[in-house]
């Protein structure tokens, strides 16, 4: 892609203070993200993937280096967290419209928008359910709907399908692909799954063991829309093998 990047990350490092010289979690991470690009980060547990997303979301200041958004200084962020974190005192509907509420959108408008999202993630009929009555997968989908509802510039997904069974998970890939294509969002997603990253992403960045560095940057040149069965094509297999080799 030759479009101008929307986000550049330059020489980013994160060190958490500890008793012996600091815990180096991320080291000299640099990458660029183009508008509407779908990027996946793959990496072993503890390599700092969540930490990276927290820095991008502005929840954590990096120890050194910088994150630069081209269009505006504070982009609108939609984030799906690794653990589902719905507010237990809000219904599905009220959880989803929270970001709009905080922006001061009128209640009527917010409801219409949230209802759209509810349909998008297939939760019609559960508008008034409490989070305690949802399955793990449903809660995750509420989280995804909430991250999309305020039309963010950048979508950050931290293993959003981690708690789903294999079949639901693969259905969600198709769903997310569809949502991404319909909404034309820039997405940065963290995952453990090679298949997931190849199915969804334009580019896959592989992080090393802690301290996390970008070890490999793979362009996923599989044409879209990607159907379920692309996983059985030789090209997909070749890319998957490449990724597997770098991860080990």
């Amino acid at each position: 892609m030759t479009t101008k990047p929307i986000l550049t990350v330059h020489d980013l490092s994160v060190v958490f203070p500890d008793s012996n010289g600091g815990l180096h979690v991320l080291e000299n991470i640099s990458f660029e993200v183009c508008p509407r690009e779908f990027i996946c980060f793959l990496g072993p547990s503890g390599s700092g993937k969540t930490t990276l997303l927290r820095v991008l979301a502005g929840l954590l200041a990096p120890t050194s280096g910088n994150v630069h958004f081209i269009r505006r200084q504070h982009p609108k962020i939609g984030m799906v967290f690794q653990q589902s974190n719905l507010m237990p005192w809000r219904t599905v509907m009220d959880n989803i419209k929270l970001p709009l509420e905080l922006e001061g959108v009128s209640d009527a408008k917010a409801r219409v928008k949230a209802q759209e999202m509810i349909e998008l993630v297939g939760l019609d009929g559960f508008e008034d359910s409490w989070p305690r009555d949802l399955s793990g997968g449903m809660a995750q989908r509420v989280g995804i709907a909430r991250a999309l509802v305020h039309d963010p510039d950048l979508l950050l997904l931290d293993e959003p399908f981690g708690s789903l069974d294999a079949i639901t998970r693969e259905r969600m890939w198709t769903e997310l692909s569809r949502i991404w294509q319909a909404k034309q969002k820039t997405v940065i997603m963290v995952t453990h799954s090679i298949n997931e990253s190849l199915f969804l992403a334009d580019r896959v960045l592989v992080l090393t063991q802690r301290p996390g560095k970008v070890k490999f940057d793979l362009e996923v040149d599989i044409p879209r829309p990607r159907k379920d069965d692309i996983r059985y094509t030789p090209h997909f297999g070749k890319l998957a093998r490449k990724l597997r080799e770098t991860i080990e």
């Binding site: 979301a57 502005g58 609108k76 507010m87």
Partner: peptide, 25 residues
């Protein structure tokens, strides 16, 4: 803490954090 993260990721103000998170929680 994850709910603080959520509120901050959508740029909630102090008052919003007080009334929409801390009070109900």
């Amino acid at each position: 803490p994850v709910l603080y993260d959520l509120m901050r990721s959508v740029r909630a103000t102090r008052w919003q954090i007080l009334f929409k998170l801390e009070l109900p929680a």
